[in-house]
Design a protein around this nucleic acid. Structure first.
Lengths: 90, 90
DNA sequence: TGAGGTTACGCCTATCGTAATAATG
DNA sequence: CATTATTACGATAGGCGTAACCTCA
């Protein structure tokens, strides 16, 4: 599992669409599709249902989405706090 | 920034020693040393003080350590919760 | 047959390990 | 000089993009 995979997952979950997610991420479709698949493999089963309209979150996907968003937010906080601690407020 | 870098950082911070951290991580020393350096570069400055005895956390390193541990814990929770949601408790 | 997702394949960058090189008490 | 971290360098693996393919209404 990588932070990229988590970011790709959140984008697909929010867009409900690999194509739109890949444009938002500025990455080609197959890259997103592959990473989602790898994530699903690692988590032991599908997170999305593939429909002719796009990707619909399954229950396990909804569970993961909450955690995934929290992880990305925690990373942002970690970076901001560490940088801020180094540059004392003027 | 990657989850590996965060794991390497936590190991070095806890061991105070790249060598011990690398053994604990089952990875060669230079790999750990390089990733720590890359992390420091990304965060805009050093996280450790290099001493002849090992690596001592700087204040910004202490700040980052708290966040780093939280991120790794959140990842573990994400995996566990998603897997558990798929395999209903017997 | 059109919209979407996936697989195949080749390239390219990142990461690793071994070995050599500092730096420091 | 012993201990620790870092740099060099060659090899390997992972990730990406283009192009081809599959699936389903």
């Amino acid at each position: 599992m990588s932070l990229s995979q988590i970011r790709y997952f959140v984008a697909v979950a929010e867009e409900g669409h690999v194509g739109r997610a890949s444009r938002r991420l500025r990455v080609a479709q197959p890259a997103v599709s592959r990473q989602i698949r790898a994530l699903e493999d690692e988590l032991g089963g599908p997170l999305f249902e593939r429909t002719p309209r796009g990707m619909a979150l399954l229950p396990s996907g909804r569970v993961f989405l909450g955690h995934a968003s929290a992880i990305l937010a925690a990373v942002d906080r970690a970076v901001a706090a560490t940088r801020a601690g180094r540059e004392p407020p003027a």
